[in-house]
């Protein structure tokens, strides 16, 4: 999938660069991109270490287990095979809770954690329905307080800052529900978990 995305992006960029006369900045952007990816990865190392460490303590102390048991009735509808087999339930719960609470820098490490846990013992290299669902929720997650956008709007001197919350709730909740339903439908059509 990534191979296709990468090729399409680069080919389009090449054609437009030639056509547009912007080949100079295209060629510069390649090395800049390589540079940026390393910076991004290094900054991710710290966040990932922190959240994986926190996760380990929460797991060992049994807190997450309790929360995930509490959420099981709902989660079973969204992640049927994970919550049937009991694999990675704690990781999934932690990831979704972080998303809803708006701790956005925790979602990525926790999701990676959950997906690699789900992957164990499965067909190598192929995403399962539950993995796709988790990724979907990572992209369109309902969150209680959209902090980033409120902060930006405040900084820019907007009159409507907190008023934005209600439409964001409606929009992100609706998208989350649509995403979940579509994923379940496609999962059913695709058959194998």
């Amino acid at each position: 999938m990534l191979g296709k995305c990468f090729s399409i992006l680069c080919i389009v960029a090449f054609i437009f660069g030639a056509f547009n006369g912007s080949m100079e900045s295209v060629s510069k952007s390649i090395l800049e991109g390589a540079d940026k990816s390393v910076t991004l990865c290094i900054s991710l190392i710290g966040v990932m270490a922190l959240w994986n460490g926190i996760m380990e303590i929460l797991k060992e102390s049994g807190i997450i287990k309790r929360v995930s048991r509490l959420l099981t009735p709902v989660m079973r509808l969204v992640f049927p095979s994970a919550f049937k087999s009991g694999i990675a339930t704690e990781e999934i719960t932690a990831c979704i809770s972080a998303g809803v609470l708006g701790v956005s820098n925790a979602v990525t490490p926790l999701a990676i954690n959950a997906i690699s846990k789900m992957e164990r013992g499965k067909r190598k290299g192929v995403a399962t329905n539950d993995m796709i669902m988790l990724c979907m929720l990572g992209c369109a997650c309902f969150n209680i307080i959209p902090t980033t956008i409120i902060a930006i709007r405040q900084k820019m001197g907007a009159t409507y800052t907190y008023e934005i919350i209600v439409p964001v709730w409606i929009c992100s909740f609706a998208c989350m529900v649509i995403g979940i339903l579509l994923c379940r439908l496609m999962g059913k059509i695709n058959g194998d978990s």
Binding site: L2, C5, F6, L9, C10, V12, A13, F14, F16, G17, N20, S22, S25, V26, K28, S29, I30, E32, G33, A34, K36, S37, V38, L40, C41, L44, I45, M48, A49, L50, W51, N52, G53, P109, I112, N113, S116
Partner: peptide, 26 residues
């Protein structure tokens, strides 16, 4: 977590280069 982050670098590098090129090309 550290091991996980290191594993990301190869694919991240590819994606960011692709996106960067597209944005730079106009």
């Amino acid at each position: 977590g550290l091991d996980g982050a290191i594993k990301l670098l190869p694919s991240m590098c590819a994606l960011i280069i692709g996106v960067n090129m597209l944005l730079a090309s106009g």
